[in-house]
């Protein structure tokens, strides 16, 4: 069973809550995904506004764990304050730490990320860092106190799928005992299956489900692909070969000429 910061989870899919066509579709998608964790965010509330309260109530009714993010932060100090405000609202030490370094690619600023991770860990947070597939950054994040790593496989919202499977494989090998979650860039269920086959512990996705033609159905498809990939990884897969290997035994084959 997947274990993240001492919490056991039966599902290996984490789902974002943004960009759905309606709150009702969001709720249905979360249910169909079987996700035990959903990500949420914080934004400025308007005077007299109640939109945040309505959304929070909807999420609470889903009965899943909440993983607030620090999306949109560009420095360690911004991310740390946002994390503290998220803890105030959501009442959880969990934080998906995002510190964006580049506007177009939304690539994390890994230097600020490590610094923020260190500060937040010291403040009692359980940090889920959105990072790159860089091994040294992974080591620094673990040294900063993270007990989960969440590398991207492609830019956020790109639906491009794993662009560098070799790097993901190297990361799996480098951190065999650390839960690794592919966060960002997954577009299709087959992408989720691919990274799970590489031995990743879970996937976190949002846009691929939210912007699909039928988000609840796509959520279910991703859940099945994630489970299939995990099962295949545990079952032990064949390595590809260049030449054919007959599957039907040749011993005892009739000789007609």
């Amino acid at each position: 069973m997947l274990k993240l910061y001492d919490t056991e989870l039966s599902s290996r899919l984490l789902l974002g809550t943004a960009r759905y066509p309606s709150p009702a579709v969001l709720s249905e998608a979360v249910k169909c995904s079987g996700a035990g964790i959903v990500t949420v965010s914080l934004r400025r509330e308007t005077s007299g506004g109640k939109t945040g309260g309505a959304f929070f109530e909807l999420i609470r009714e889903l009965g899943v764990r909440i993983l607030p993010n620090t999306a949109g932060c560009h420095s360690a100090s911004e991310a740390v304050l946002t994390a503290k405000m998220a803890r105030e609202v959501f009442g959880t030490n969990w934080i998906k730490l995002e510190v964006i370094g580049h506007h177009d690619s939304l690539q994390p600023d890994v230097f600020e990320l490590v610094e923020a991770a260190r500060i937040l860990t010291d403040e009692g947070f359980d940090v889920f860092p959105y990072t790159t597939d860089d091994l040294i950054v992974g080591e620094k994040l673990l040294a900063a106190g993270c007990r989960v790593l969440m590398p991207w496989c492609a830019p956020i919202g790109s639906a491009a799928g794993p662009r560098n499977p070799s790097a993901l494989t190297a990361m799996r090998a480098a951190f065999p005992d650390i839960p690794l979650i592919v966060d960002a860039g997954l577009g299709r269920p087959s992408h989720a299956a691919t990274v799970m086959e590489l031995g990743y512990d879970a996937v976190l996705l949002n846009t691929a489900v939210a912007m699909a033609g039928d988000p609840p159905a796509m959520a279910e498809a991703f859940a099945k692909a994630t489970d299939a990939g995990r099962l295949a990884y545990l079952a032990g897969m064949l390595e590809p070969r260049d030449m054919a290997v007959p599957s039907t035994p040749v011993i005892g084959k009739a000789v007609f000429s």
Binding site: R44, G52, F90
Partner: peptide
């Protein structure tokens, strides 16, 4: 002063 509230996020 910053006043924040929950919203959708990925």
């Amino acid at each position: 002063i910053e006043i924040l509230s929950p919203m959708q996020g990925g």
